[in-house]
């Protein structure tokens, strides 16, 4: 009994010190455990992402080998060839028109894809968010179904729909609305439709996540204060779900810019995008330094676009969170 009493006494006396000591020790243990837990992920990240990036960066400053690969001699040709080309006969430098037009097509189609995905994705997210909670999960499930199918198969399915003897042209023809099939496959339009289809869920899901948190009583308050439907959308709903719109746009824009499979199949090889151009350098082009430099150019464009977007659109939102 008496030892227990003593223990209780000393514990009372040093209680506060002990409490903070215990808290410190627990905290340190937590930090250690967290580091330990993240180590495998960090290793994978370094080996699979940072490592290859570093190799690519090095390659972009070397000269091309005759049969692919690189020669270990320092050269600026990779970077110079991103926008310039050297004439085979007289060796003069001029702007690489093909590269510029591919870059322009990539940016244009990615922006268009983002915009189209937003136009279709926003109402979809709104629709799902306004369903009763039970049916919401069903709709979300339906939205994610395309993810289950292989990208190639989905892209071939689109080809089947838009090709000259495809579903759309056959129907239009049988309705006698057109005489000649409309050329949709192997155009920029086809690439954009394909990318919109593939990346639409990436737009819908973040917007839905924001929309689900939206207090629809605010919408009622807007109507109550004489705001018409359009004004409620513009003044209340849009500002409140903006984080979701920003996230969705980024998630669609970035993979669109580097898309490879969709433009390759739906663009038919002549309507190239950056991804295809890069692939070309590592394949038939046998110009790895140029491919590496192009990859880094893509990375720079994405980062710049992100920076502009987050600065311009995302800033006012962060003020009051």
């Amino acid at each position: 009994m008496s030892t227990l009493d003593q223990l209780a006494q000393s514990e009372l006396a040093t209680g506060e010190n002990r409490a903070s000591a215990i808290a410190d020790a627990t905290h340190r243990a937590h930090v250690r455990r967290r580091l330990l837990l993240t180590t495998p992920a960090l290793i994978v990240l370094f080996c699979a992402a940072s490592g290859p990036l570093l190799i690519m960066l090095i390659y972009s400053f070397l000269s091309a080998g005759d049969y692919g690969g690189v020669e270990w001699t320092l050269s600026w040709d990779g970077w110079a060839n991103v926008f310039m080309q050297r004439d085979i006969f007289d060796g003069t430098l001029s702007i690489a028109d093909a590269h510029v037009s591919i870059l322009w097509r990539s940016v244009k189609l990615s922006l268009l894809t983002t915009f189209t995905a937003l136009v279709f994705g926003f109402p979809t997210a709104y629709f799902i968010a306004t369903r009763p909670p039970r049916t919401r999960n069903l709709w979300l499930f339906l939205i994610t179904i395309p993810f289950w199918t292989n990208l190639l198969i989905r892209t071939f399915a689109i080809m089947e729909v838009i090709r000259n003897q495809g579903v759309i042209n056959t129907i239009l023809k049988s309705l006698e609305l057109i005489d000649e099939p409309i050329q949709m496959l192997f155009t920029d339009f086809a690439i954009m439709i394909g990318m919109t289809y593939v990346y639409l869920p990436l737009m819908v899901l973040p917007i839905y996540a924001s929309m689900e948190k939206l207090d629809f009583r605010l919408v009622e308050a807007g109507y109550d204060l004489y705001a018409t439907r359009f004004r409620v959308l513009r003044r209340i709903i849009l500002p409140l779900v903006k984080p979701g719109v920003v996230a969705g746009s980024i998630l669609v824009f970035i993979p669109s810019l580097g898309a490879y499979v969709t433009p390759r199949l739906l663009g038919g090889g002549k309507n190239m995008m950056l991804g295809n151009l890069i692939e070309l350098q590592f394949g038939q082009g046998r110009n790895w330094p140029l491919g590496a430099a192009l990859s880094f150019s893509l990375l720079i464009i994405v980062m710049a676009a992100l920076l502009i977007y987050v600065r311009g659109v995302g800033k006012p939102e962060s003020g009051h969170d």
Partner: peptide, 15 residues
């Protein structure tokens, strides 16, 4: 929005 009636909501519903 066409009724000259305004509401104070239970949770206030401030924007």
């Amino acid at each position: 929005y066409q009724r000259q009636v305004n509401t104070v909501f239970q949770n206030y519903a401030l924007f």
